[in-house]
Amino acid sequence: MNSRLIPENHRVTAKFIAGEEASAIAAAACVDNPGAHVEDYGSYLSISNELRLDLNIPTIVEELGRPYEVSALLVVLASYTGQVELGPTCLSIKEALAN
């Protein structure tokens, strides 16, 4: 990249529509992803981490106190940076084009 003004970064992010679920997802993300950083922008929460972010349903269930599914994550996932992979009990965001 020839622009000196944009440093390359390896951070992935997920933005969730603010609410009860977003708060539980953010809390779960901090448990499962040491070093994850959460920022509150009022209408949405931004969760970021270096290289990879795993959002595990069992941990979210633990934080939320009720059953939860991957498909429900997609209802409140407003945006992300990286490459999304959906599994049966996990939504992972990995650095795009890393390999």
């Binding site: 990249m1 020839n2 390359e8 951070r11 992935v12 992010t13 940076t81 650095e95 795009a96 084009l97």
Partner: peptide, 17 residues
């Protein structure tokens, strides 16, 4: 996020800024 976190990675495929 877009140019630094995504577009920059296209360089290895021969894509320029």
């Amino acid at each position: 996020e877009f140019y630094g976190g995504f577009y920059q990675k296209l360089e290895k495929y021969g894509i320029k800024a």
